[in-house]
C-alpha cells in the first residue's frame, strides 16, 4: 500500500503539471492563459468524443494507447513521488519501461500509413537510440552515489546527504535535465505546441489518434512529464523530497517547480534543428560521463 498511494497521487496530479506549464508559459508571454485545471477538462471532453481511425491501420494501432498508458503507470509506480526506502524501483527497469513506452508510440506512428506519423516515428526512434547512453550513465552514477539501485533509496539518500556531496552530483543532474527534456519531447528537442507537421516529433505520431485513444496518450505523456519532472526536482532540491505529514503539499511544490523549470526553458531558448540533435545528445553524454567520473573519484577518495 505504501507504493499505491504515491502512485495514485502522481496519476491524479499529472494533468495539473501540464496545466501549470501552460500557465507559466502564458505568464511569460504576458497572457493570462487558461485555468491550470484546463487539461483535466480537455481529457474529459476527449473521452466523450467518437473516434475516427484510418483504414490502413492494424491491431497494433489499437494496442498502442493501452501499452503506452500501462508503461507510464509502471513508470509512476517505479519512481516514487515520495521517497520509499528500500531496494524498490530498480533504475535499469525504469530505463527499460521508458523505452518500451516510447517504442509503442513509435509503432503507433508507423501504423498510420501517413508520412507525418512515419516522420515523427523515425525522429523519435533516433532520439531514443541516442538518449540511452546518457540515461544509463546518469542512472548508474546516481545508483553509485546512493549505494543502491532503488530509485526510492536514491531519493532518500539525497535528502540525507551533505551539502558537499550535492555539489558532486551537480554535473550528473545537468545531464539528467538534458535527458528529461529529450524524453518528454520538450524544447530544445521538440516543440510541444507546434502546429507545423514538419517540426513535430512527438505530436506527429499522435496526429491520427482521436477521442478516448488520444485522451489516453495525452494522459500518458502528462504522467511521464510529471514523473521525470518531479524526480529531477527531488534530486535538485532534496528538501522537497523529505517525508513527513505534509507530503502532498511538498509534492505540489515539486510539481510547481518542475512546471516552472520546463516553462522557463521553453520561453527562453529556441528549438534546435533536428539534424543537430547529435550535438545535444553528445553534450548530455559528456555531462553524464563527467558527473560519473566525479562521483567515482569522490567515492575512491572516500569523500562521500
Amino acid at each position: 500500500m505504501t507504493i499505491l498511494l504515491p502512485t495514485l497521487l502522481i496519476l491524479l496530479a499529472s494533468p495539473l503539471t501540464v496545466g501549470l506549464v501552460r500557465k507559466f508559459k502564458a505568464l511569460f508571454q504576458n497572457r493570462r492563459g487558461a485555468s491550470i485545471f484546463q487539461p483535466y477538462w480537455a481529457l474529459l471532453s476527449l473521452l466523450r468524443k467518437d473516434m475516427t481511425i484510418t483504414r490502413y491501420s492494424s491491431w497494433v494501432f489499437h494496442t498502442v494507447p493501452f501499452v503506452v498508458l500501462g508503461s507510464t503507470i509502471a513508470l509512476a509506480a517505479l519512481v516514487p513521488a515520495v521517497p520509499i526506502a528500500g531496494t524498490y524501483g530498480n533504475v535499469f527497469l525504469i530505463a527499460g519501461v521508458l523505452a518500451l513506452g516510447s517504442v509503442f508510440l513509435v509503432l503507433g506512428g508507423m501504423d498510420t500509413a501517413s508520412t507525418f506519423g512515419n516522420m515523427g516515428s523515425s525522429r523519435e526512434m533516433s532520439l531514443i537510440a541516442l538518449v540511452e547512453p546518457p540515461l544509463f550513465i546518469v542512472f548508474a552514477s546516481l545508483a553509485l552515489f546512493a549505494g543502491s539501485f532503488g530509485m526510492g533509496d536514491i531519493i532518500a539518500h539525497f535528502t540525507s546527504a551533505t551539502a558537499g556531496s550535492h555539489v558532486l552530483t551537480a554535473v550528473t543532474l545537468i545531464a539528467l535535465f538534458f535527458v528529461v527534456l529529450a524524453e518528454n519531447a520538450r524544447y530544445p528537442v521538440d516543440n510541444p505546441a507546434t502546429h507545423l507537421e514538419l517540426t513535430m516529433v512527438h505530436e506527429a505520431m499522435m496526429l491520427e489518434y482521436s477521442g478516448p485513444y488520444l485522451a489516453l496518450l495525452e494522459y500518458a505523456s502528462a504522467i511521464k512529464l510529471t514523473v521525470l519532472g518531479t524526480l529531477f526536482v527531488s534530486l535538485l532540491l532534496p528538501s522537497f523530497a523529505a517525508s513527513g505529514t505534509v507530503l502532498a503539499l511538498l509534492f505540489l511544490g515539486k510539481l510547481i517547480l518542475a512546471a516552472f523549470l520546463v516553462a522557463f526553458v521553453e520561453s527562453t531558448i529556441v528549438k534546435m534543428r533536428f539534424y543537430r540533435m547529435q550535438e545535444y545528445m553528445a553534450l548530455a553524454f559528456l555531462f553524464a560521463l563527467g558527473g560519473a567520473a566525479l562521483i567515482i573519484l569522490s567515492k575512491l577518495s572516500g569523500a562521500v
Binding site: S58, V103, L107, A113, M125, A129, E132, I137
Partner: peptide, 28 residues
C-alpha cells in the same frame, strides 16, 4: 564506465533496428 556507455549505445541502436524491422514489414 566506458563499457557501460558502449553497451547502452548498442542497446539503443538495437531497439532502433528492430522497431524499423517490424514496422516496415508489418505496419502501414
Amino acid at each position: 564506465l566506458l563499457v557501460l556507455s558502449s553497451v547502452a549505445l548498442v542497446g539503443g541502436l538495437a531497439i532502433f533496428a528492430f522497431v524499423k524491422f517490424f514496422s516496415l514489414v508489418f505496419l502501414g
